[in-house]
Design a protein around this nucleic acid. Structure first.
Length: 821
RNA sequence: GCCCAGGUGGCGAAAUAGGUAGACGCAAGGGACUUAAAAUCCCUCGGCUUAUGCCGUGCCGGUUCGAGUCCGGCCCUGGGCACCA
């Protein structure tokens, strides 16, 4: 028999054309039956598809295809997260305009994605850098400004004094600008903020509703990021003059142990004190250097300097010095902390370094502590000592009593504090959504009126330096004030690109809507399964949850409880690693998937990447294992072609051998199905299909009719089961097996419980927990008869000889453990 | 520094809910077919040890008839830390 060679290149092209003609994956405007919205995080058009993309989209597509075969109406869209820093960097390096660079990359990557045969509804594709998309972001921005959910305040950025530009944290290397090499300075500028803190409690509580569909790890990270903590706000009155320094603490019980206050270098009091204190001014100046990133601040050597200012302890009245310290963050809480060296490790080290007093007020046993002998802070709970009338109280009681005492004096109260800070969305960059505001000398800051939207970003610039070209373009800058019509100036800051990725999932449901969203978004949302990298566990996924609530509270989504959260289920995919670290351009360890696809085809690439590891785990790249995936597909190809389109009915009476094979077929269907939903362990599902294939290969051409018929049943099952992973070959084999229609729209097979049933089971016999024998039993044997049979079995006698039986544990269906003494 | 993960053969991994450690695949070795090669098919494949034996899931300890799985304490690797996306 002549079997055509498995030639994936032509085969995949043909199948893809068929799908395109039949519009197989086009989603309806509004789902009429049960809907399933599958979404993978859309890519930044960096130029080349990388392995992380292939993995991300293969996972999401396997899920989408499975759900489609379950009979649901599936929406799976694709688009482009098209604004961002790399386009500007490329523009500077290659002299190509960011818009052009971005659009060329999209064209190339679209081709690469299409080559993978993912079941997208391409009619919904959009890029976020088009005015049709970002105009609605501008529209919403103005709405939020009017509601007070957007506001301006000072905040700190990395300033490159040579390039005269703001740097992203990534662009600061060892405290210096990556292009100029100059030490960066911290600079305070006025920026726009989204009031995410107003939603802190709702975002926190919403996590509880996600516990079924989101990984516990991500929920924990978001909880910690929001960082709700109960404690007290405490006011320390200045010793000289009016005013107080406010601090937040979760440990008001340690208040009597506070021996100094520490404020951020940017704190107004520190800045003020530096006026008369050259040494302090010098210290604050040194603190201005280095990146603003929390990681760099938290890992630097802890340093401080006294302000020469004192406060009064709110309860004892004792005079405490105020220090400036480089580890206190101005953006967190009040930018000041009370320091209790005896009970906080960082305060302890700081106090030892600068010889500040240490006063122990909590001890586990309630006995006074010798602070000179302490080698580290005692941070646990205990009973109060050295705390006057509070002595002897346990920490918990002391917390509320001390807070009450403060409240009585008007110097504090119980407070809830969040680690979460408002979302700064201003970027001093060109390639982003223009912020729709106008600066007028007379009217101040004025939003662009709705009829003047969108504020279109000019796309023709050739960048000469990192400075935004908008700053030098009179055509963009000059505008009449919408209120008084006097000459005014446009805002040149653009929005954080996280804004675009915070609502794209909703726009995919109605990409041509005449407004930001329409009814179709309500019908398709929430996303039933979202798939993307773990690295987005907090920022993107928290911003999108926040933004979804903004859409709801603007009336674009209903407040019906169903639309609060954007993503019902989340799968966080592990990274693709090479030589132990993340594949990335900057590390130069990327493997281009294009070569893989050219050589073996999309089906092999997809099958390999899903087989190599479970989706949530990191995947260590290896070239050789790809061969195995390709071999497997070739094997199925041959098997199906050898069998052909013969339809043989399974006889009603079949041999025990045939019954075993049929059980294997249905066990495979069962195992694959259970791994397609919930756990998504595609590697195990594929292994099960391989195992069945191995079993089916043993059925020869001259085998009895019952075995041949079951071989046919098995081959149909394998083709269906493999189709979410290797859809092209599955379509062709489906036809080869004499089946009609597209396999992509065929029903998923169901395991027959009758075929799964087995008459006998094999139990493992352990002695003192160690495997010794195996014995067969009828499937319905009860524990007592099993125990009896084990003890009387000839093979067991040598294990039992001279021993007494202390215990016999029978685990139904699994094992028997004899405990002998 | 803080938060979250992960660590099982030469390698990627598997092990529903505490019950046979290593399914499936890669690599390697041996064989069949072939003039030869490729392809394909078959066999072996954790370690010690000439086993019906012992040891073995990062390290140390604990709970249990039984621990990769649960508990306590470490070590190492990775991700995130608010302007990379």
């Amino acid at each position: 028999m002549d079997i055509p060679a498995y030639a994936p290149q032509e085969l995949e092209a043909t199948v893809q054309q068929r799908w395109q003609h039949a519009q197989t994956f086009k989603a309806s405007a509004a789902p009429s039956g049960e809907k399933f919205y599958a979404l993978a995080m859309f890519p930044y058009p960096s130029g080349q598809l990388h392995m992380g993309h292939v993995r991300n989209y293969s996972i999401a597509d396997a899920i989408a295809r499975y759900q489609r075969m379950l009979g649901k109406e599936v929406l799976q869209p694709m688009g482009w997260d098209a604004f961002g820093l790399p386009a500007e960097n490329a523009a500077l390096k290659n002299g190509v305009a960011p818009a052009q660079w971005t659009l060329e990359n999209i064209a190339h990557m679209r081709g690469q994605l299409q080559r993978l045969g993912l079941s997208y509804d391409w009619s919904r594709e959009f890029a976020t850098c088009t005015p049709d998309y970002y105009r609605w972001e501008q529209w919403l921005f103005v709405k939020l400004w009017e509601k007070g959910l957007v506001y301006q305040k000072l905040s700190t950025v990395n300033w490159d004094p040579v390039d005269q530009t703001v740097l992203a944290n990534e662009q600061v290397v060892d405290g210096c600008g990556w292009r100029s090499g100059a030490p960066v300075e911290r600079r305070e500028i006025v920026q726009y903020f989204l009031r995410i803190t107003a939603y802190a409690d709702e975002l926190l509580q919403g996590l509880d509703t996600l516990s079924d569909g989101w990984p516990e790890q991500v929920l924990t990270m978001q909880r910690n990021w929001i960082g709700r903590s109960e404690g007290a706000e405490i006011h320390f009155p200045l010793a000289a003059g009016d005013g107080v320094i406010k601090v937040f603490t979760t440990r008001p019980d340690t208040l009597m142990g506070a021996t100094y206050l520490a404020v951020a270098p940017e704190h107004p009091l520190a800045q003020q004190a530096a006026g008369q204190n050259a040494e302090l001014a010098h210290f604050l100046e040194r603190c201005r250097h280095g990146s603003v990133s929390e990681a760099s601040i938290e890992t630097q050597e802890k340093e401080g300097h006294p302000l020469g200012i004192y406060v009064k302890h709110p309860l004892s009245g004792a005079k405490l010095p105020v220090w400036a310290a480089n580890f206190v963050l101005i953006g967190y809480g009040e930018g000041a902390v009370m320091s209790v060296p005896a009970h906080d490790q960082r305060d302890f080290e700081f106090a030892r370094k600068y010889d500040l007093p240490i006063r122990a007020v909590i001890s586990a046993e309630g006995l006074p502590l010798d602070t000179t002998a302490m080698s580290e802070a005692y941070t646990g709970p205990g009973r109060l000592v050295n705390s006057g009338s509070f002595d002897g109280l346990p920490s918990d009681t002391a917390k509320s009593l001390i807070t009450a005492a403060l409240a009585e004096k008007g110097l504090g109260q119980k407070t809830v504090n969040y680690r979460l800070r408002d979302w700064g969305i201003s970027r001093q960059r060109y390639w982003g959504t223009p912020i729709p505001m106008i600066h007028c000398e007379h009217c101040g800051i004025v939003p662009v009126p709705e009829q003047d939207l969108p504020v279109v970003l000019p796309t023709h610039y050739q960048l000469k330096d990192p400075r935004s070209p908008l700053l030098d373009d009179p055509e963009f800058l000059n505008v009449a004030c919408p209120v008084c019509h006097a000459p005014a100036r446009r805002e040149t800051d653009t929005m954080d690109t996280f804004v675009e990725s915070s609502w794209y999932y909703a726009r995919f449901a109605c990409p041509d809507a005449a407004h930001m969203l329409d009814q179709r978004a309500i019908d398709w949302l929430p996303v039933d399964q979202y798939v993307g990298g773990v690295e987005h566990a907090v920022l993107h996924l928290l911003y999108a949850r926040f933004f979804n609530r903004l859409l709801r509270d603007t009336g674009l989504l209903p407040a019906d409880g169903i639309h609060d959260e954007p993503f019902k289920r989340l799968l966080t995919q592990g990274m693709v690693l090479k030589d132990g670290s993340k594949m990335s351009k900057s590390k130069g360890n990327t493997v281009d998937p294009q070569g893989l696809i050219d050589r073996y085809g999309a089906d092999t690439a997809r099958l390999f990447i899903l087989f190599a590891a479970p989706p949530e785990q990191h995947l260590e790249w290896s070239d050789s294992a790809v061969e195995g995936a390709h071999r497997f597909l070739s094997r199925i190809w041959r098997l199906v072609h050898e069998y052909g389109p013969d339809h043989q009915a399974i006889p009603s009476e079949i041999s025990p051998e045939a019954r075993d094979l049929r059980r294997a077929v249905h066990q495979c269907i069962d195992r694959v199905s259970r791994n397609m939903d919930g756990r998504y362990h595609f590697n195990v599902a594929i292994a099960a299909i391989m195992e069945l294939t191995n079993a089916l290969m043993k059925v020869t051409a001259d085998a009895p009719a019952d075995l041949r018929a079951i071989l046919g049943e098995g081959l149909r099952a394998i083709t269906l089961l493999i189709s979410p992973f290797a859809p092209h070959i599955a379509e062709v084999l489906w036809t080869q097996l004499g089946q009609n229609g597209e396999i992509s729209k065929t029903s998923w097979p169901e395991a027959d419980p009758e075929a799964l049933r087995s008459d006998t089971i094999t139990l493992v016999i352990q002695v003192n927990g160690k495997l010794r024998e195996r014995m067969d039993f009828p499937a319905d044997a009860d524990n007592a008869s099993i125990e009896k049979a084990v003890l009387s079995a000839p093979a067991m006698q040598r294990h039992l000889e001279g021993k007494t039986i202390r215990k016999c544990i029978v685990v139904p269906g699994r094992l028997v453990n004899l405990v002998l003494g």
